[in-house]
């Protein structure tokens, strides 16, 4: 994080209602922070506006896709006029309009193993708003290697899950989830993305502000059919090829962390 931040009068007023929630210095920590958001789809349609509105100083959003009409039931950052246009720059534009006091870095591209660490370097937290586990595992390995907290989210139909990975302390995605081929066109209700993406944004804000995150290391599971939450305690896998059940795991390097 940057050492010193300053707020103009309008910014002070803008964040006044959350001062008491974030605590002393919390808003400053948000403004000084950089967050990487992987994906600009359904989950990001909730994650990005809430991070921007809360005043996260630098948001780096990365997505390879273009807008399709069948995205629009859940991807509220876009309209029919955006069909065929790359999502990342559009998402950047939307949240820049939402809060002009931020630095937005929006890039169209695929997160590849060869450059994933370069994308995340300097970030204080990362958000998994992706739609496939192949790329999730690439993101997970980079975040664990750089010791950057990662907030995972995934959805299907009316169900969703959130898992906060604190490298060196909690299970990582590779500890918990097996390989599964990518699947496109999965059934999903937009409101499910809203629920899960909002929880993810809340997790990131808590991490950045220095609030407690007691749910780290657990899988929070939303059952939208019954309107209920479940949680599962997760254990680190001592033979995990990414975190190895020990701090940082193979190839760990010191990142900005929190």
């Amino acid at each position: 994080m940057k050492d010193r931040v300053e707020f103009g009068p309008k910014e002070r007023e803008r964040y006044r209602r959350q001062d008491a929630v974030l605590g002393p210095g919390g808003q400053e920590r948000l403004k000084a922070a950089t967050v990487f958001v992987a994906g600009a789809g359904g989950l990001a349609s909730a994650v990005l506006p809430y991070l921007a509105a809360a005043g996260v100083g630098t948001i780096r959003v990365y997505d390879q896709d273009v807008v399709r009409i069948d995205n629009l039931n859940r991807q509220l950052l876009y309209s029919e006029l955006d069909e065929g246009k790359p999502k990342a720059p559009l998402a950047g534009l939307r949240i820049r309009n939402l809060n002009p006091h931020l630095r937005i870095e929006a890039v169209q591209g695929r997160i590849e193993p060869a450059h994933a660490r370069d994308l995340l370097r300097g970030c204080d937290a990362a958000v998994d708003a992706l739609d496939n586990f192949e790329t999730r595992f690439v993101l997970n390995e980079a975040a664990v290697g750089l010791r950057i907290p990662l907030v995972h989210g995934a959805v299907l139909e009316l169900s969703g899950q959130v898992m906060t990975v604190i490298p060196g302390k909690t299970a990582c995605l590779k500890c918990v989830f097996p390989p599964l081929p990518a699947r496109s066109g999965f059934p999903i209700l937009g409101a499910t993305c809203g629920v899960i993406g909002s929880v993810q944004a809340g997790e990131v804000i808590k991490l950045l502000a220095g609030l407690e995150t007691p749910e780290a290391g657990r899988l929070l599971f939303w059952d939208g059919r019954r309107g209920s939450w479940d949680e599962l305690e997760l254990r680190r896998n001592p033979t995990c090829p990414v975190c190895g059940g020990k701090a940082g795991g193979a190839g760990a390097e010191r990142g900005s962390g929190i």
Partner: peptide, 25 residues
């Protein structure tokens, strides 16, 4: 799957959870 898959031994008091694999985003 990180244990012994279907061959994983169970003991008295063990907790097992069965959940769908959610992938979308």
């Amino acid at each position: 799957l990180s244990l012994q898959g279907l061959e994983t031994p169970l003991g008295d008091g063990d907790a097992v959870a069965i959940l769908p694999f959610l992938i979308g985003g």
